[in-house]
Design a binder for these strands. Structure first.
Length: 492
RNA sequence: GGCGACAUAGCCAAGUGGUAAGGCAGAGCUCUGCAAAAGCUCCACUCGCCGGUUCGACUCCGGCUGUCGCCUCCA
């Protein structure tokens, strides 16, 4: 079965037919590091991460390009506000993004070009557009002449007509341009602004042109997939099309346009002014990356998604449950097994999983399939050999999702490594443990060890007393054949 | 005002022209000194509303209502 994806350009589910046999080129609009990355960025890049993994598993040689727009008005504004050089802003927020990307397990792009390092390619493009008569130089920059109708297909991607757009313009025109819809290709530098040399004097690229230039340079005049979040369709992607296709005379520049749905928080769009903007780094401190990934996997990538504390808690529990089932299967294999009995994923079952992903990256359906699949092994009372096969298949699927193979690695194991005891709890536990200087975690472990001893000697009264003390300290204990496990109570 | 998306149980969320995946929460049972975990069972005669097409629609068409997004910077 071939891969089908929803194509914003044609507004239909189209079959992926790479321009070059066996190879897929993907360009995704990346960060403009002018502020903290947030959970919405994570959703978008996680979407394309799963797409890459799937296409690769389908045997395609994927080239994934994700740019960095490391110069724009917001960066300059931010630098001015803080009174620091513009590139310091870029370094700070790009660093923050890269650290977050690593924690999220995003595969590094094959190419990660930066606008300021591609000035020659950008200048070449702008110059070419002027020569073709679709762009013009004015007092403060170079503009693309949308209003003059130089690009008849303008509005086709976002399904807007030039007339309607013209009616909708409601921002005071400050730039020195001929038509209200015209957009900047090159901005001449005002005193004190960062600049690069060009035939039109020192300046910087306008927003949009850098993507046209970089996509062309790394993937060619025509390539397979161009992606980004839904809010980029207009004007960013529309303008990219106008620039690139005017320059090359070819259409379409990208066969597929993929758009990831936006993320709301508590029913509202994330924004600084609403105060619901949580930096991604903080979210990652609060929730394991695997849980965030799993949460997004449970939703269709195109749908607008609403993030709430409840939704991520439920995702955490769901993921932990999945790992618990898997662990149980692994347990059943161990005694009779032997370490060298390796099983391979079942091809027919992996194919069932793949069918979901082939269908417009239906990760939610695939997650449901995987949950049922693992559970079915219990219902069937799987033999050790079969259990091994199910585990191998499940692990394969998890890897395809970019999820770790077990709860420990995913950071959702029941036993927590992070404890923070309050004063009263610390005092109570240190008395029980007979320790004053132990760390919180050592203290807890000591008391849990006492509890285990009490249980071994069937001293239920003592065992219950210790359990209660731990509970007051916010620690939940559960007993297993291999010793007691504890976790910070209420943490999911 | 223009363009577009979405509307499935308490919550999150798949899906098909032929009779509703999965997860969370909830109920019961098994197990258990207790507490958990886990397993099993149950949990939408119904898919925003109204028409139409059809032997049959939640799934196709039309209308209505509602929510959201884009049209200005945005992943």
């Amino acid at each position: 079965m071939a891969v089908r994806l929803y194509n914003s350009r044609t507004r239909s589910l189209d079959e992926l037919r790479p321009l070059k046999e066996g190879r897929v080129g993907i360009y995704v609009c990346g960060m403009t590091p002018s502020f903290h990355p947030h959970l919405g960025h994570a959703r978008t890049f996680l979407t394309f991460d799963v797409l890459r993994r799937h296409l690769r598993a389908r045997g395609y040689d994927v080239t994934y390009v994700q740019n960095v727009t490391d110069i724009d008005d917001r960066i300059i504004e931010r630098a001015a506000t803080e009174g620091v050089p513009w590139d310091q802003i870029v370094t700070r927020y790009l660093g923050e993004y890269e650290a977050a990307a690593q924690r999220l397990g995003l595969m590094p792009p094959d190419k990660e070009p930066r606008a300021t390092q591609e000035i020659p390619a950008i200048v070449e493009l702008v110059d070419g557009l002027i020569k073709k008569g679709v762009a013009y130089e004015s007092g403060d920059g170079v503009y693309f002449a949308v209003d003059e109708g130089v690009f008849p297909r303008y509005g086709e991607l976002s399904h807007q007509s030039i007339d309607e757009l013209r009616a909708g313009v409601r921002v005071a025109v400050r730039e020195d341009k001929r038509g209200r819809l015209d957009f900047a290709l090159w901005k001449k530098a005002k005193p004190g602004e960062p600049s690069w040399p060009s035939p039109w004097g020192p300046g910087r690229p306008g927003w949009h042109i850098e993507c046209s230039a970089m996509a062309r340079k790394y993937l060619g005049d025509e390539f397979d997939i161009h992606g980004g979040a839904a809010d980029l369709i207009f004007p960013h992607h529309e303008n990219e099309v106008a620039q690139t296709e005017s320059y090359t005379g070819l259409h379409p520049m990208a066969e597929f346009w993929l758009h990831a749905g936006l993320l709301n928080v508590d029913g509202q769009k994330m924004s600084k002014s609403l105060g619901n903007f949580t930096p991604l780094t903080q979210m990652l401190d609060r929730y394991p990356a695997a849980v965030i990934r799993y949460l997004f996997l449970q939703t269709g990538y195109r749908k607008p998604s609403n993030f709430t504390a409840d939704s991520i808690d439920a995702a955490g529990k769901g993921l932990r449950g999945l790992y618990a089932d898997l662990d149980k299967l692994r347990e059943t294999v161990k005694p009779s097994g032997g370490a060298n009995q390796q099983a391979s994923p079942n091809p027919a079952e992996v194919a069932e999983f793949d069918e979901f992903l082939d269908d417009d990256l239906n990760t939610a359906g695939a997650v449901g399939w995987l949950q049922t699949y693992i559970k079915s092994a219990f219902k069937e009372r799987a033999t050790p050999a079969r259990a091994r096969e199910v585990v191998a298949t499940a692990e394969h699927c998890l890897e395809r999702f970019g999820l770790p193979a077990d709860a420990q690695t995913a950071g959702v194991a029941a036993t927590s490594s992070q404890v923070k005891l309050n004063k009263a709890a610390r005092m109570e536990l240190s008395i029980i443990a007979g320790e004053r200087d132990a760390s919180d975690i050592e203290l807890v472990e000591k008391v849990v060890a006492h509890l285990d001893d009490a249980r071994k000697s069937k001293d239920w009264a003592k065992s219950d007393r210790l359990r209660d003390a731990l509970k007051r300290a916010g620690i939940a204990v559960k007993n297993t054949p291999s010793g007691s496990q504890w976790s910070v109570d209420g943490r999911s």
